[in-house]
């Protein structure tokens, strides 16, 4: 992505280098713009609560988070890729692949062996993309676009186009990842929280995390300062693949059977959540925490609109408006002007 956006990056070099001091927005305006995503989140929650008292019901909230978990887990990995200045459009196809493979191997090898085998296969796909984008420096948008189609073909070849179902659905412990709960908290939520905190610490507190920001912020400078760009980008795709494998595991365990198209279209929802969380497609900006907020916003919007009686497609329009507003306000705060300086 860095290639596309580098031109836009040029337009506000002053604002960027000065550490983005606000000029016109004022204190309140800057706070609103900077933390706009949290403000919007709060407003939504209040609005929906007034509209329908069931919205804040603990069961409902738990339900929303549980059904957001799969999207959320994938968004965590994509956050790494996006911060490093790249894109991943293949996560939807890859999630279908992970789900189909683990369900198939479950009956052939047993769950204990099926899970690591599936992780290994998905990580191989991640490594392949990481190699193309990291070491061969091919454009990530096109590579992952190609992989979106290729992995779908691979999945169909693997399954022969058939739905994959576990034969003995009662006698397996494989359903723990998707259907059980620990201390009243559903396991998908636990896995999501666990991964989010682990990856959040990795991104914010470790040398590797700093390298990811450095590579995405300014790839050339990072290379000169001794960071091996290729290796960092490669690792980001591995992390993304790991998250996708986990999402596939939850999906497979939740339904114990699946169609080949289960992850189709998820790549764009994931990207929307990551962007909503404020990760910049130019790379170098974003946090795991904000991505989680982005995921939850999408989940609660969907749920809230359903509760007030709107169809699922109403959320598309609302998501559109929110994404543009969130990114716009974020940029506006950085450059200190509401309107773009483009002539």
């Amino acid at each position: 992505m860095s290639e596309i956006t580098s031109k836009t990056a040029n337009e506000t070099p002053a604002a960027r280098s000065k550490g983005a001091r606000p000029v016109q927005l004022g204190v309140i305006g800057t706070f609103l713009a900077r933390q706009g995503i949290l403000v919007a989140f709060a407003l939504f929650m209040i609005g929906f609560t007034i509209a329908n008292e069931r919205f804040l019901d603990p069961d409902n909230i738990m339900g929303v988070i549980r059904s957001s978990a799969i999207l959320g887990v994938m968004a965590l990995g994509v956050t790494f890729v996006v911060i490093s200045g790249n894109l991943d459009l293949s996560v939807g196809s890859m999630m279908s692949f992970a789900t189909i493979v683990v369900l198939d191997l479950h009956d052939k090898l047993g769950p204990a062996l099926a899970i690591p085998s599936m992780y290994a296969m998905v990580l191989c796909l991640g490594a392949f993309i990481g190699f193309l984008v990291g070491y061969l420096r091919l454009n990530s948008l096109i590579v992952t676009l190609g992989m979106l189609s290729a992995i779908h073909g691979l999945t169909l070849t693997y399954s022969g186009g058939k739905n994959m179902d576990i034969a003995d659905k009662e006698g397996t412990w494989f359903d723990v990842f998707g259907q059980s709960a620990v201390l009243g908290i559903p396991v998908p939520i636990l896995l999501f929280a666990l991964l989010a905190s682990g990856l959040g610490i990795m991104l914010a507190k470790t040398p590797f995390g700093r390298k990811v920001y450095a590579v995405g912020g300014n790839g050339t400078a990072a290379t000169f300062s001794g960071i091996r760009r290729a290796r960092v980008v490669f690792t980001c795709y591995l992390i993304s693949a790991f998250c996708v494998a986990t999402a596939g595991l939850i999906q497979a365990s939740r339904s114990l059977g699946s169609q080949n198209t289960v992850g189709q279209g998820l790549e764009l929802e994931v990207l929307a959540a990551v962007i909503l969380g404020g990760a910049s497609l130019m790379g170098g900006a974003g946090t795991i925490f904000k991505t989680v907020i982005g995921v939850l916003i999408l989940g609660f919007i969907q749920n809230g609109l359903l509760l007030v009686g709107l169809q699922f497609y109403a959320q598309y329009v609302v998501t559109w408006i929110i994404i543009i507003l969130a990114v716009w306000l974020d940029i506006a705060a950085k450059r200190g002007k509401l309107w773009s300086p483009i002539a």
Partner: peptide, 28 residues
């Protein structure tokens, strides 16, 4: 689509406290 149907049903369950039967256009 099985996934789409699961999401639709999740929404139904949120909306209606009393559902006695579900007719779906195929078993998937």
């Amino acid at each position: 689509n099985r996934e789409k149907s699961q999401r639709v049903m999740e929404a139904f369950l949120v909306k209606y406290d009393d559902i006695d039967g579900v007719y779906s256009g195929d078993d998937n």
